[in-house]
Design a protein around this nucleic acid. Structure first.
Lengths: 101, 101
DNA sequence: TTATCATATTGAAAATATTCGATATGAGAG
DNA sequence: CTCTCATATCGAATATTTTCAATATGATAA
């Protein structure tokens, strides 16, 4: 997978309203899927889909306990996303140069 | 527009490979659309579409000079995105609490 | 074992996003 | 004004994402 594809995948975690709602809930601590499902107005397979995207991006990590799955925000994943965002939006002034003017 | 919709829109800037390529080019300084178009393997209306999304997200700002439009990364837009990302991925430990276990 | 509960996967429909040809707009140049 | 060039918008095709009903999986309970 190219770097750009990989980076785009990380940010996809933050591109959907429902996923932002889920992240907001996880900010107050680990939650099991059942609680997330209860508070969101979506079907169970839809939640499962969003949790997969959040976990694939590395922003959220799952913890399985018996029948339940608990989800929490990964500090490491958050830091990685933050570093990527900073890199992407910081102008590299050592190579600053004009353009067709 | 809801907060979540608004936030999702900002991160949408980073969810597409072509937009990440554009941002990478803008990291070395302001570029006019013609240069970006020349270096990307996409049609002109497609570039225009991506530039609109980048500008709407606040990450990129346009500067019109005669017939040309120059685009550059907005430090302010980048900072806003960074702050949003940090908020979204930081666990609020004052409200840490268990969940259904 | 069988029954039940929590979550994941499948498959198809609906909603969004991306793409590009055609065309419009708006700014010089002549 | 007319012509040309740079970019934006329109409209339709294609691709991707989101959604949910149905079903599968995997764990515990009886």
């Amino acid at each position: 997978m190219s770097d750009h594809q990989d980076h785009a995948q990380v940010f996809r975690a933050f591109c959907d309203e429902n996923r932002l709602m889920i992240l907001e809930m996880l900010r107050t601590g680990e939650k099991c899927a059942c609680i997330l499902l209860e508070k969101m107005n979506i079907a169970q397979p839809t939640l499962s889909h969003h949790m997969r995207i959040l976990c694939d991006s590395g922003i959220v990590v799952p913890r399985k306990v018996g029948k339940w799955t608990y989800y929490s925000i990964s500090a490491k994943g958050g830091d990685r996303a933050k570093d990527m965002l900073i890199t992407l939006t910081t102008v590299d002034d050592t190579s600053e140069g004009g353009c067709c003017e």
